[in-house]
């Protein structure tokens, strides 16, 4: 009986270990879990498979977030609802935009054709920062700092987990560079529908052409279509790449008229459970398509 009482009193005396953190983007969810481990309970608001450009939290989601001490977003304008969400949360809750301190790639007015969708062309900043693996390494550090700020007692755990996660990302970045090196330099030209791969192209030395226009119906002007076809022909680009969540109609049209083939789809919006698998899948498909 005494043992049972002692056990119960110990249980009562133990502080609650879990730090509740809400995540608005699937890639962020994975990173919070990597860094927080068992010390953090993740409230998944943005789930794998969602349309990150159209998602908005519902009343039920806001209710779930009430438990969270921190709400973590991808940032760079991807979650256009953040201002409204801020008004729905309490003062003691913090909204963290991971992308805020990650270097931005701006989309100039002239280059608006390169934006992923009309909405995300507004601020001129490309929100798809995660396609540069080194940026994801920064994200790990940002999340580590925020978790430590909210739960100082877990500092050592977060630091150790973050170190391990960063080491994995350094390896992944090396792997990407190694794979890209197998593509002849003159063939490193990535043609996709939307401008979701700007960070990837800059980080790994690709020229980029994103053919999809800004019109809401996703149509592309005849002049732009002809320009893209001519470019592919003149540079003898072997493959154009559709995206897993976008209509491949325009790209098929371009491929048909330029003689290029349509590659395996790339994952653009990060709406997946595993960051590493997404990068590996994208790079494998790009290499297979361009090494021809």
């Amino acid at each position: 009986m005494k043992t049972l009482l002692f056990f119960l009193s110990t249980l009562i005396a133990l502080p609650a270990l879990a730090l509740d953190v809400a995540s608005l983007h699937p890639l962020i969810t994975e990173t919070i879990r990597d860094v927080g481990g068992e010390r953090v309970k993740v409230i998944e608001i943005g789930r794998a498979g969602m349309n990150v450009h159209q998602f908005e939290p519902r009343t039920g989601d806001v209710r779930k977030m009430a438990k969270a001490k921190i709400v973590i977003a991808s940032g760079k304008g991807l979650e256009s609802y953040l201002k409204d969400l801020k008004d729905s949360l309490r003062k003691d809750q913090t909204i963290v935009e991971v992308g805020r301190t990650i270097p931005s790639q701006k989309v100039s007015k002239k280059d608006q054709i390169y934006a992923c969708c009309p909405h995300h062309a507004v601020g001129g900043i490309d929100p798809h920062w995660w396609h540069n693996v080194r940026h994801m390494e920064r994200a790990v550090r940002i999340i580590q700092k925020e978790l430590t700020k909210a739960d100082p007692a877990g500092k050592a755990i977060y630091a150790a987990n973050a170190k391990a996660a960063r080491a994995r990302l350094v390896q992944l970045d090396r792997w990407v560079k190694g794979q890209v090196a197998t593509i002849p330099k003159k063939k490193r030209h990535l043609i996709t529908a939307h401008a979701a791969f700007g960070y990837f192209c800059k980080a790994y030395g690709f020229d980029a052409t994103f053919v999809q226009g800004l019109s809401a119906d996703g149509e592309i002007s005849a002049a732009q279509l002809a320009k893209s076809i001519e470019q592919i022909r003149s540079e003898a680009i072997p493959t154009v790449f559709p995206e897993s969540t976008a209509n491949p109609k325009t790209l098929r049209q371009i491929a048909k008229h330029s003689g290029a083939s349509v590659g395996k789809p790339l994952i653009a919006d990060g709406s997946v459970k595993s960051y590493q698998k997404m990068i590996q899948s994208n790079v494998t498909n790009i290499v297979a398509g361009l090494r021809k």
Partner: peptide, 11 residues
């Protein structure tokens, strides 16, 4: 009167 959640400074 509830004050909204804290948000970081802008870019």
């Amino acid at each position: 009167r509830q004050e909204p959640a804290q948000q970081q400074a802008t870019e």
